[in-house]
Amino acid sequence: MSLPHLPLDAITIGAHADDWPAAITAAGDALVRSGAATSAYTERMIGVIREFGAYIVIAPGLALAHARPGADVLTDGLCVVTLVEPVAFGHPHNDPVSVIVGLAVAGADDHLQFVAELANVFNDPTVIPALAGATNAEFVQSVFDRTAS
């Protein structure tokens, strides 16, 4: 199973966020806009970080925002938000964050396989800086679609 297609309306370039909850909210908004989730999912993504800390910052500059499957997930979805000003999440090694990948998965079984595909995208160390510097959504889409096939 490959990654869900990343639609242009799930990509936000150059968002402004004062703090990490605002950054996660920008990712939640992109999932809502593209029809993958409702705003309740945004709150749950923030709740995961409040409960467990900034462990979702899994590489320098990159946060993987997500929560468990739930009724607020309408369909599997992916979003990408880049920030004008990087934001600190409180991670000792990987702060500050300039790229947020948001993930909504309808069923727990899907999760493993499609997150594994994300590893294939990001194992290329040039990808995070390239996304952080992206000036248009089409470029971001091409990065994900290239590896999705």
């Binding site: 462990y55 979702i56 994300l118 990001f122």
Partner: peptide, 10 residues
Amino acid sequence: CGIGLGTSAI
């Protein structure tokens, strides 16, 4: 990971 899917899958 915190919730056992997502980051731990990577």
